[in-house]
Design a protein around this nucleic acid. Structure first.
Lengths: 210, 210
DNA sequence: ACGCTAACGGACGCCCCCGTCCGTTTAGGT
DNA sequence: ACCTAAACGGACGGGGGCGTCCGTTAGCGT
């Protein structure tokens, strides 16, 4: 994008680049973002210098490595918004995003780490607005509790990140059940008692009114 | 307890011991269990050797440092069990434990880390059984959903641990709201749809039947 | 007041991670 | 086939945490 470099990478360089990204994806997914850069290099079968040449910082590497997941996120949100039943759409979004995070620990960390500071990763602003709209429609339809706030969704995602288990399968299972519980909590109900005030989790979101 | 040492510590040793525990409590609470041992020593105004002499491993230090919180935990559970209304008792337990964990990040980590492996910390077995009984009574009273499992409570506590914010106040606020949502999810309701199967979170708990 | 010993803490060696430099290899154009 | 520059990776110095050793300090009993 912003590189004034010779636009054609040498074939071996391109190959290494891909292998590095593969290794990064594998390790980030399994072990989170805290894996040493060298570990990634080792797994990719390259030297540390090569790794740093391609991706000067871990942030850059992570961003590239999670491009797919970010796209998946947007697709999930778009699908949810496209659903004629806004409540069903919102439920799908919650379930799918939770599962995505459960399957990929590194992405989960990166995704949530991006929230306090708002450096606008990959059209987040737009996506957040879309979800806000979806939630509003679900409220209007009387299916989503009226005191729901967008921060509640972030709260649930943060919480979902806290669920760690040894096996990946167990992780997904636990996360699924958690998402289902969250949805039950969000569903409008005649019996629900007032919630304690929501905490502001986003640093400087323009409106968390919905 | 198990020390065959000269039962009288020298006055300065005792003093240092207390200062170390204070420092550990402060740092563990604020920053979690990952603080370097040396940082604790520095804060306590002692050398590293002194720290290691008193507490040979971080595990030992943490256990001692969190004795109060562990007692608080048991008190909370006992109070909850003593409540004539089992549902109200269970709600209190959830709220209080979540708040405890929110106020003390280190304790939260230590507490949950103890779960997969079951080295029986401080009468955990007994407490777990007590909560199980409370939950069963809440179910019998028709207030707790019948497909609730004890692992769901652990799930919620794990999830609660995932909630991190910058300020401690915000943390408690967020955790409070989260606990309220969890309670709503657990409450029996005519409209609730079946949950996906619960994942086994405890390593070898004898019965998670409740 | 004195001495004995418990208790202290500075300093050491170890290991792991970080980011960079520079001599070597190799792709790809002629 | 050859040459050039792009690309590689081993190796280095720096920093920080870990757990331990040992020479020094100071509590406490006489």
């Amino acid at each position: 994008m912003t590189d004034g470099l010779p636009h054609t990478l040498r074939s071996d360089a391109l190959d290494n680049r891909e292998r590095i990204l593969d290794a990064a994806r594998a390790l980030f997914s399994a072990d989170g973002l805290d894996v040493p850069m060298r570990e990634i290099a080792r797994r990719a079968g390259v030297g540390p210098a090569t790794l740093y040449r391609h991706f000067p910082t871990k942030q850059v590497l992570a961003t590239e490595a999670f491009a797919d997941q970010l796209r998946a996120c947007r697709t999930i949100v778009d699908d949810g918004c496209a659903d004629p039943d806004p409540w069903r759409g919102l439920c799908l979004v919650i379930e799918k995003i939770c599962e995505l995070h459960a399957r990929d620990r590194g992405f989960s960390e990166a995704f949530m780490a991006a929230f306090p500071g708002a450096p606008e990763v990959g059209g987040r602003e737009y996506t957040v607005k879309a979800v806000a709209g979806l939630a509003q429609r679900a409220k209007d339809a009387g299916r989503l509790r009226s005191d729901f706030v967008l921060d509640d969704l972030i709260l649930v995602l943060m919480a979902n990140k806290g669920i760690h288990t040894r096996s990946a399968d167990t992780q997904v299972m636990a996360s699924r059940r958690f998402a289902a519980l969250a949805i039950q909590a969000f569903e409008a109900s005649p019996q629900h008692t007032p919630l304690p005030p929501a905490a502001r989790l986003t640093a400087a979101a323009p409106d968390n009114s919905v």
